[in-house]
Design a protein around this nucleic acid. Structure first.
Lengths: 243, 243
DNA sequence: TGCGCTTTTCAACATGTGTTGAATTATGAA
DNA sequence: TTCATAATTCAACACATGTTGAAAAGCGCA
């Protein structure tokens, strides 16, 4: 049997690399797009390859397996988070050296309020338009196949929470915040609740919440920050001890 | 070719129903167990059948397809939620007719505080030990295949949120709560944040949060309620208008 | 006992998946 | 030009999945 007995001479079946070399980060882009759209387990290697315009096998040339691709995306994304938070924390530290804790800026916020708000904005910019990234996290938490998530979480989220947490702590020292809040938990509430809004509100808007998703999320942002601030700040009125 | 030329006469290949009739709700139990363990998409029909001790086809006799099984579980679970919440709301209503809003019970809570705490406890009992149920929701939210979740959410969660929401509203009327909170959103924050704790804390405990999961969750429950209450109650100290 | 209906199982189909080994082409240095 | 090596593709494997049509077994009633 002749292998070359082709019936369609017009095709030029090309095997081997395309003229333009594909950068591994392009593959990650494609993977992120696909995972965003189809989820972590439905997002197939073949779909990623289609998105990147290459053969599935190429992904195995650049990455060990599917899990490695997922982790590479997480690392790339989380890596951008820390510097943003650090900048805000540094600015806060230098501010309270020269300003009274009760002084307000042109938005009417104290240095601490401003820092917390900025923290929220960092998360906002980080995850708001990246439904895919949030879905990846959510999938990973729900899935029994954790895809190495816990390690990544610890590596990247630990310093992130540390930064926010120590900012809260200096707020306690200046007397702005209540002494009885648990730093780690409060940090968790702060960030998670906001992120949760982004995914759940679209399920509710128009019906349970009679607004458009966009305006609902914008309003939720403010509502949440107000509630959170009122919740942690050192108000004279206090709850019963026996709560 | 003889079909009956079996080599193992000791087996008695039985086709047809087993002596004991299988109740469809047993199948739902099995499905819930499997979905809990393996997730919504990895939890296969075959695995459910194995768990129930029957053939996969039997599931198609009692349910239209996999999605129908998922929805049936949700309905069964959500159906138990509303009565619990209603009972609390009714008790609150009758209490404030005879008691001052500021009166406290033996736990040091006002009627409104008590009602909100009870709401949280209903959710606690509802979802705390049902990792599987929470995972099902989380999967469903993250998945592109929503499995009819939005309809179910609206049908069952809408009245649930309505109950909590109107309790908050009467708190506003008595002057206990701030007038500027958005009822739907505040309700959402209240419930979701707590549920989120249950799933995320186990990822963090022992490392980011240096506690055992159980005690961390117990503490988070109290911390969250305190923060939430302080956040919504009508304290004299107020945030800047421009926030 | 015999019959009809309900419940359960069997066997298979079509499809999609992650992954791999070998074949192929491009690239860049000698 | 030659040739080793890097980058890419092809074809296939082994397996799991949701679903279905038909066959089998049990059950209740005459």
């Amino acid at each position: 049997m002749l292998k070359s007995a082709v019936t369609k001479p017009s095709e030029r079946p090309s095997r081997g690399p395309k003229p333009i070399k594909i950068d591994p980060s392009d593959l990650l882009d494609a993977a992120q797009t696909v995972f965003a759209r189809d989820g972590l387990e439905d997002g197939s290697i073949r779909a990623i390859a289609r998105e990147a315009g290459c053969d599935p096998s190429l992904l195995y040339y650049h990455f060990e397996n599917k899990e490695a691709i997922f982790l590479a995306i997480l690392e790339r994304k989380f890596g951008l988070l820390i510097p943003g938070l650090e900048g805000i924390a540094d600015e806060y530290t230098s501010r309270i050296k020269i300003l009274a804790p009760t002084s307000t800026n042109r938005n009417g916020r104290t240095p601490l309020q401003e820092a917390l708000w900025q923290f929220l904005m960092v998360f906002r910019n980080h995850v708001k338009d990246d439904l895919g990234f949030r879905h990846m996290i959510r999938w990973s938490v729900a899935s029994t196949k954790k895809f190495g998530l816990e390690e990544i979480m610890f590596t990247y989220l630990s310093p992130a929470m540390q930064i926010i947490s120590s900012t809260l702590n200096s707020g306690i020292k200046t007397g702005e915040l209540r002494k009885d809040i648990n730093l780690a938990m409060t940090t968790f509430f702060f960030v998670r609740t906001y992120i949760d809004v982004l995914d759940f509100f679209p399920l509710f808007t128009g019906r349970l919440i009679q607004m458009q998703p966009e305006e609902a999320i914008d309003l939720a942002e403010v509502q949440w920050f107000k509630l959170f601030w009122a919740g942690i700040s050192n108000t004279p009125k206090n709850l019963g001890e026996k709560l």
